Amino acid sequence: SQVHIGNTTFTFDNPEKAQKYAEKYAKKKGLTVQKNGDVWTVE
């Protein structure tokens, strides 16, 4: 599972961890999370 934030990609061994990280980061920065398969993009 991966989380894309700008030009940075974070890889997680667990989809739940990836989703939590993406949502927490997005909330903190006032951004949105797009999910595509097991990839979350914060923008």
Results as ranks from 00 to 15, higher is better:
Ser1Arg: 10
Ser1Trp: 15
Ser1Lys: 09
Ser1Tyr: 15
Ser1His: 14
Ser1Pro: 13
Gln2Ser: 08
Gln2Phe: 13
Gln2Lys: 14
Gln2Asn: 08
Val3Trp: 00
Val3Asp: 01
Val3Ser: 02
Val3Leu: 05
Val3Phe: 03
Val3Arg: 01
His4Trp: 07
His4Asp: 05
His4Tyr: 05
His4Phe: 08
His4Leu: 11
His4Ala: 06
His4Val: 14
His4Thr: 09
His4Cys: 14
Ile5Ala: 03
Ile5Asn: 03
Ile5Gln: 01
Ile5Cys: 10
Ile5Lys: 03
Ile5Met: 03
Gly6Trp: 11
Gly6Lys: 11
Gly6Met: 08
Gly6Arg: 10
Gly6His: 11
Gly6Thr: 05
Gly6Phe: 12
Gly6Leu: 09
Gly6Val: 06
Asn7His: 13
Asn7Lys: 11
Asn7Thr: 09
Asn7Gly: 10
Asn7Leu: 08
Asn7Arg: 11
Asn7Asp: 09
Asn7Val: 07
Asn7Ala: 08
Asn7Pro: 05
Thr8Glu: 12
Thr8Ile: 14
Thr8Asp: 10
Thr8Cys: 15
Thr8His: 15
Thr8Trp: 15
Thr8Tyr: 15
Thr8Val: 13
Thr9Gly: 03
Thr9Gln: 07
Thr9Met: 13
Thr9Val: 15
Thr9Pro: 01
Thr9Ile: 15
Thr9Arg: 11
Phe10Trp: 08
Phe10Cys: 15
Phe10Glu: 04
Phe10Asn: 03
Phe10Met: 12
Phe10Arg: 11
Thr11Asn: 10
Thr11Gly: 04
Thr11Ala: 07
Thr11Ser: 09
Phe12Lys: 02
Phe12Leu: 03
Phe12Trp: 03
Phe12Pro: 02
Phe12Met: 02
Phe12Asn: 02
Asp13Ser: 10
Asp13Ala: 10
Asp13Tyr: 07
Asp13Gly: 06
Asp13Pro: 12
Asp13Gln: 11
Asn14His: 08
Asn14Glu: 09
Asn14Pro: 01
Asn14Gln: 07
Asn14Lys: 05
Asn14Leu: 07
Pro15Arg: 03
Pro15Gly: 04
Pro15Lys: 05
Pro15Asp: 10
Pro15Asn: 08
Pro15Leu: 07
Pro15Ser: 08
Pro15Phe: 07
Glu16Val: 11
Glu16Gln: 09
Glu16Ser: 10
Glu16Lys: 10
Glu16Pro: 00
Glu16Cys: 09
Glu16Ala: 10
Glu16Met: 10
Glu16Tyr: 11
Glu16Arg: 08
Lys17Asn: 12
Lys17Gly: 07
Lys17Asp: 15
Ala18Tyr: 00
Ala18Met: 00
Ala18Ile: 01
Ala18Thr: 00
Ala18His: 00
Gln19His: 07
Gln19Val: 04
Gln19Ile: 05
Gln19Met: 09
Gln19Cys: 10
Lys20Leu: 12
Lys20Ser: 11
Lys20Asp: 12
Lys20Glu: 14
Lys20Met: 12
Lys20Gly: 05
Lys20Asn: 10
Lys20Trp: 11
Lys20Ala: 13
Tyr21Thr: 04
Tyr21Ala: 07
Tyr21Ile: 06
Tyr21Cys: 14
Tyr21Leu: 06
Ala22Lys: 01
Ala22Thr: 01
Ala22His: 00
Ala22Ser: 03
Ala22Asn: 01
Glu23Lys: 06
Glu23Phe: 06
Glu23Ala: 05
Glu23Asn: 04
Glu23Ile: 05
Glu23Trp: 04
Glu23Thr: 04
Glu23Gly: 00
Glu23Tyr: 08
Lys24Trp: 15
Lys24Tyr: 14
Lys24Val: 10
Lys24Ser: 13
Lys24Ile: 10
Tyr25Asp: 03
Tyr25Lys: 02
Tyr25Met: 11
Tyr25His: 06
Ala26Arg: 01
Ala26Phe: 04
Ala26Ser: 04
Ala26His: 02
Ala26Gly: 05
Ala26Leu: 07
Ala26Thr: 03
Lys27Val: 05
Lys27Asp: 08
Lys27Phe: 07
Lys27Met: 08
Lys27Trp: 07
Lys27Ala: 11
Lys27Ser: 09
Lys28Asp: 12
Lys28Cys: 15
Lys28Tyr: 10
Lys28Ala: 13
Lys28Phe: 10
Lys28His: 09
Lys28Gly: 08
Lys28Ser: 13
Lys28Arg: 09
Lys28Gln: 13
Lys29Leu: 14
Lys29Glu: 09
Lys29Val: 08
Lys29Asn: 13
Gly30Ile: 01
Gly30Phe: 04
Gly30Gln: 05
Gly30Asn: 06
Gly30Leu: 03
Gly30Glu: 01
Gly30Arg: 04
Gly30Pro: 01
Leu31Met: 09
Leu31Gln: 02
Leu31Thr: 04
Leu31Cys: 12
Thr32Glu: 06
Thr32Pro: 04
Thr32Ala: 08
Thr32Gly: 05
Thr32His: 08
Thr32Tyr: 04
Thr32Met: 08
Thr32Ser: 09
Val33Trp: 06
Val33Phe: 05
Gln34Tyr: 12
Gln34Gly: 06
Gln34Phe: 12
Gln34Asn: 12
Gln34Ser: 13
Lys35Glu: 01
Lys35Val: 06
Lys35Trp: 09
Lys35Phe: 12
Lys35Ala: 05
Lys35Cys: 13
Lys35Met: 07
Lys35Pro: 01
Lys35His: 08
Asn36Tyr: 11
Asn36Ala: 09
Asn36Met: 14
Asn36Asp: 11
Asn36Glu: 11
Asn36Trp: 09
Asn36Gly: 03
Gly37Glu: 06
Gly37Thr: 03
Gly37Trp: 02
Gly37Asn: 06
Asp38Gly: 07
Asp38Trp: 07
Asp38Tyr: 08
Asp38Thr: 08
Asp38Ala: 07
Asp38Phe: 11
Asp38Arg: 06
Val39Phe: 08
Val39Asn: 11
Val39Gln: 08
Val39Glu: 10
Val39Leu: 06
Val39His: 12
Trp40Ala: 03
Trp40Ile: 05
Trp40Gln: 01
Trp40Tyr: 10
Trp40Asn: 02
Trp40Asp: 00
Trp40His: 03
Thr41His: 10
Thr41Glu: 12
Thr41Asp: 05
Val42Lys: 00
Val42Ile: 11
Val42Arg: 00
Val42Cys: 03
Glu43Lys: 11
Glu43Met: 13
Glu43Tyr: 13
Glu43Leu: 13
Glu43Asn: 09
